[in-house]
């Protein structure tokens, strides 16, 4: 059991940084330059953990990233990796899709508390933007998920996954998938919804005061968290994975799709992105919900 959990965690960490490295490479190619090597992101992460100094604004500032990381890890542990599997299901029998959805916002809230406790107004500003954007992102995603839960008469991820043996949900409920995919882009922090962390917009956003080990933890959790989200999308819409190769293939396809879409579009402001998310994908999701 504990070994399972550890494997899940390590896999998430590994794949998370691997995909992050790939993302940097692909983006570079799209921009017509060469990116860093795939190992670079792992080096970065480990290097930051061993950085000499980082400013410490008190215990809440200290606790913020930890809560954030706990949220990300918790999310991974409650999502099963494999279809019908006995192995690598983690804690998913003790939770369900609704619990996972809420874990996904636990991290940002912990982060918000930590960021708020340093006295930098830019951090708080970034957090407000982040929470506002989250509001837009959640809407289409939640509606899509609600549609799936109603269609499957269950909120259990394993059940939803198992029910896709015949047809994947991406085919059975295409509208829901489109809506979920658009917000998924935002959840991953890809364009056009990446205003929160963009240094040009607010002077470096939520992470403004983070440095050293704090930044390292923030980076690691973000890698783990993005893998968790990929996993969730695969489980919900692509029928889950039967084997390790299946898992890698499906997450990779989804990842590449998101990277390419992200690279094509410019950036929305916070208000624009929420406006867009509340209009286009939400409406798509509602239409999809009506078809369920």
């Amino acid at each position: 059991m504990f070994i399972d959990l550890l494997i899940m965690l390590v896999m998430a960490y590994g794949f998370g940084f691997l995909y992050y490295g790939l993302y940097r490479n692909i983006s570079a190619r799209v921009h017509g330059r060469f990116g860093p090597s795939l190992a670079q992101s792992f080096y970065d992460s480990i290097k930051l953990f061993t950085k000499d100094t980082s400013t410490d604004f008190g215990w809440m500032f200290f606790a913020g990233p930890i809560i954030m990381a706990s949220g990300a890890i918790l999310t991974v542990l409650f999502i099963p990796y494999f279809n019908h599997g006995e192995r690598l299901v983690g804690l998913s029998p003790y939770g369900n899709l609704i619990v996972v959805l809420y874990f996904m916002v636990l991290g940002p809230l912990g982060n918000a508390l930590g960021v708020g406790s340093h006295g930098n107004p830019f951090g708080a500003m970034g957090i407000t933007r982040g929470l506002t954007r989250l509001l837009g992102l959640e809407m289409p995603f939640y509606i899509a998920v609600v549609g799936l839960m109603i269609a499957n008469e269950s909120a259990d991820i394993g059940t939803i996954m198992a029910n896709q043996a015949e047809t994947y949900n991406i085919i059975a409920h295409p509208l829901l998938f489109i809506a979920a995919f658009i917000s998924f882009l935002g959840f991953l922090g890809k364009s056009p919804f990446d205003v929160v962390g963009a240094p040009q917009e607010v002077y470096s956003g939520p992470a403004v005061e983070f440095g050293g080990k704090f930044l390292a933890l923030a980076l690691s959790q973000s890698a783990i968290f993005s893998f968790a989200k990929l996993l969730l999308m695969v489980d919900l819409f692509l029928g889950g994975a039967d084997s390790l190769w299946d898992l890698i293939l499906k997450t990779f396809v989804l990842f590449v799709a998101s990277v390419f879409v992200g690279n094509v579009y410019g950036r929305f402001t916070t208000a624009q992105s929420v406006d867009f998310l509340l209009k286009v994908p939400t409406v798509i999701a509602i239409v999809g919900l009506l078809f369920v």
């Binding site: 509001l135 959640e138 939640y142 509606i143 609600v146 919900l289 369920v292």
Partner: peptide
């Protein structure tokens, strides 16, 4: 489903005022 979507919308927006409450009183400068 629609009702739930609406509840979720309001529930998700509630994070903002929750954060405002804690930030406005305790956090920041």
């Amino acid at each position: 489903g629609l009702l739930l979507a609406a509840v979720l919308f309001s529930s998700a927006s509630a994070f903002l005022y929750c954060y405002k409450l804690v930030y406005g009183i305790y956090l920041g400068q």
